[in-house]
Simulated assay, not measured.
Amino acid sequence: MFSENVGTSMTQIDPWDKFRHTLIEVIDSDNVTRRELFQLSQSKTGKVTDGKSYFKALYEHFEYKRDAVVEFLIHLTTKTKLHLDEGTISVPSILKEYTEQLRYTEKEERLKRENNWSKCDLIGREEEIQRAMDSLQNQRMKGVWICGLGGMGKTSVADEVCGRLLRETSNWRILKVELREQKHMRDLVRSTLILIGELLMTSFREELSDGDLEYTSKSNEEDYFEDLNQNSWRQLLIQKCCESSDQNKLFVFDNMDDILVSHEGDLMNFLNKLVNMLIEAEEDEMHQGKTRFIITSRASLPSTLTARDLRDVFDEVILKELSDQQAMLLFKQELTQQNIPCVK
């Protein structure tokens, strides 16, 4: 279950509850889906009559172990190829993403309970860490772009910044989205929405304010997301990021490389829109909490026209090669951690 630090506003919502209620509505309103799910689940549920009794029977069969229920539903909906919202949303894909984000959240909570957020010794990176800390706590700045060659420690620096923020004050929610090998904007949007508690099981059109975001840089039909869902999800993500909250939010978009290569213009347009709306929201005297971002990638913040405004509110932190002395200290540290004797 998502912890108390995972949610989108003062009212914490477990995305599993949203999924369960949505699937109950589908079962109760779609005779074909209901008949197929009930037939394939009969050995687990026995005879059931509606969505509510179906989930009750599943919970009883799996002894109220949610993980087991979710795994069964992933297998079941994969077999039935269940999609929602006119075929645009794959139910098993959503459930798989939910379980992945859930595992990450539980790991982070365990680390905090075990006090493993203690300060680590990142050799040769103190200046970069402090600069990132200062920028994230600067009211004018909205984020930090950490860049450098592979293996330079970008993720480690981002993690250390998160740890220090949590040690200094508990009023931060850290939402880390792993984007390694993710090539499309929809991957970023979907993963982030799922992490903050939106399962994308409906179109959200009724939740949105008037007007949808328009994106004119769609050049690849495969990444088009033809209907309004992708724009709606982007708008929903922007709204969630800009929501007033009693906690500060820090989104960490780790390993942005592939999306930056494939859809740089689209990404910059989206980030510009997000930042502009965030600035407007935080200027409201009634707004509570702040939202900040850490982005890591090999490439630096683009110098294109669309990225120009971002440079005013994102601090670029470039990780350079360690000195020979620092590299030797790091090597000795690795040997010590692996209990390998160091020859002097």
Rank of each mutant, 00 (worst) to 15 (best):
40 L>V: 01
19 F>D: 00
90 S>R: 03
20 R>K: 15
27 I>P: 00
95 L>P: 12
60 E>F: 06
62 F>P: 07
61 H>N: 04
32 V>N: 08
47 K>V: 09
31 N>R: 11
99 T>M: 10
53 S>Q: 03
15 P>F: 08
80 T>I: 15
78 T>Q: 04
26 V>G: 09
45 T>N: 03
77 T>M: 14
31 N>E: 10
17 D>M: 07
49 T>V: 08
61 H>A: 05
9 S>L: 06
58 L>K: 08
69 V>S: 08
72 F>A: 12
65 K>E: 06
69 V>P: 07
10 M>Y: 06
38 F>W: 04
70 V>Y: 02
91 V>R: 01
9 S>F: 04
78 T>G: 01
36 E>K: 15
86 E>D: 11
100 E>N: 13
19 F>N: 00
66 R>E: 13
31 N>W: 00
42 Q>N: 04
29 S>M: 03
97 E>W: 02
19 F>G: 06
57 A>G: 12
33 T>D: 01
34 R>I: 02
88 T>C: 10
85 D>I: 15
60 E>L: 10
38 F>A: 00
90 S>W: 04
60 E>W: 06
87 G>I: 07
75 H>G: 01
82 L>H: 01
68 A>V: 04
24 I>G: 02
68 A>N: 11
6 V>Y: 05
102 L>I: 12
45 T>E: 10
23 L>S: 01
16 W>F: 06
10 M>E: 09
36 E>R: 09
50 D>Q: 10
100 E>H: 14
99 T>D: 07
54 Y>V: 05
6 V>W: 00
40 L>C: 03
20 R>T: 03
7 G>S: 09
32 V>D: 10
33 T>H: 05
100 E>Q: 14
57 A>L: 14
91 V>A: 02
61 H>P: 02
57 A>D: 13
9 S>G: 13
63 E>D: 12
64 Y>G: 03
56 K>R: 07
65 K>I: 12
80 T>E: 06
79 K>Q: 08
44 K>A: 13
65 K>R: 13
81 K>F: 03
88 T>N: 12
57 A>I: 14
60 E>I: 07
59 Y>I: 05
25 E>W: 06
76 L>E: 10
66 R>A: 02
23 L>Q: 02
85 D>M: 14
85 D>G: 04
57 A>F: 04
94 I>M: 09
97 E>S: 15
22 T>E: 13
17 D>R: 09
45 T>R: 00
46 G>F: 03
54 Y>W: 11
84 L>H: 05
62 F>T: 08
74 I>D: 07
43 S>T: 09
104 Y>H: 11
